[in-house]
């Protein structure tokens, strides 16, 4: 009996240790970036263009480029993803087709990000002749975040009680009216959460934009959606590995801005989820 108790103690200790090995580095990474990045952050860094071959100046074009890309991706992915989620939650039956659709979504989520980059290059840049542009990059990122939006929206739609649909139909509302007036309004927090998570993902990805949009060094703002643009994650990659003698401060500063942007979006998503879970009316 004492023996089994001791075994349990040892086992639990190792489980605890493993958990620390996962969680502690996460905290350390955030702390390191914040600590070393904060000194670089000032008004000029955030609003100026890069100067002297990116060794000084700011990262404004990269911030704007990332916002454009993320905005474009969501304009493309949200309508398609939402309608696809509505299809899965309200229209599809449990059959072979819906099984295949779900499998396709899982696969879309699992395709390596660099393969999305190749695909974007082949379809949008070369085949559609958009060239390396914000448009090509946005569409590539949009397809990449589609599975996130579909999955979270579908969960949100399915969490609306079935009885509401039945009541609405029994009052003579059509199926679409029921979805539009009863199901969608009550699923909005979940859909919003998914959308913001998708935004965060799109903002942080580098590989899909490597060959579809990114400009190595473009010290001005993009003029149209057919223009190339800088982007934060690619910029961080470039100044970390491709340009020698960049001040550490600038690298950490760029990493901090990117991390803040992405974590901020995640935080917003978590808050929305938490608030509405508490407020749920049924």
């Amino acid at each position: 009996m004492r023996n089994t108790k001791r075994t349990q103690k040892i086992a639990f200790f190792f489980l605890f240790l493993a958990t620390l090995l996962v969680v502690v580095p996460v905290g350390m990474i955030v702390v390191i970036i914040v600590q070393k990045g904060i000194p670089a952050i000032n008004w000029q860094f955030l609003t100026d263009v890069p100067r002297q071959g990116m060794r000084s100046g700011g990262i404004f074009p990269a911030i704007i480029g990332t916002l454009y890309l993320v905005g474009g991706a969501i304009i493309f992915a949200l309508p398609i993803g939402l309608l696809a989620a509505i299809y899965l939650s309200e229209y599809s039956k449990e059959n072979f087709l819906s099984r295949i659709i779900k499998l396709a979504i899982v696969n879309l989520a699992g395709v390596p990000s660099v393969v999305y980059g190749l695909f974007g290059l082949a379809l949008f840049v070369v085949f559609c002749k958009f060239g390396a542009s914000i448009l090509a990059g946005s569409l590539t990122l949009g397809i990449m975040i589609l599975p996130i939006i579909i999955t979270t929206s579908r969960e949100a739609l399915e969490s609306v009680p079935y009885s509401f649909r039945e009541v609405s139909l029994s009052l003579g509302a059509s199926k679409w009216q029921t979805i539009r007036h009863i199901v969608l309004p009550n699923a909005i927090p979940g859909i919003l959460t998914g959308t913001i998570l998708g935004l965060g993902r799109a903002a942080g990805e580098t590989a899909p934009i490597l060959f579809t949009v990114a400009a190595f060094y473009l010290p001005r703002l993009p003029k149209s959606i057919f223009d190339q643009a800088m982007a934060l994650p690619y910029h961080l990659y470039v100044i970390s590995t491709q340009v020698p003698n960049v001040d550490e401060k600038i690298r950490y500063g760029t990493a901090l801005v990117l991390l803040t942007l992405v974590l901020f979006m995640n935080l917003v998503a978590i808050i929305i989820r938490y608030k509405f879970r508490k407020k749920k009316k049924w």
Binding site: S163, F164, E166, V167, S168, S170, L171, G172, A173, S174, Q177, H181, I182, P185, N186, K281, W282
Partner: peptide, 24 residues
């Protein structure tokens, strides 16, 4: 019309619950 076993108001105001079917 149907009145169900459990009271199943829609997640709307009292007014909108009654107006719902007419609005549709």
């Amino acid at each position: 019309g149907t009145v169900f076993a459990l009271p199943l108001p829609l997640p709307l105001s009292i007014f909108e619950n009654v107006a719902y079917g007419v609005r549709m």
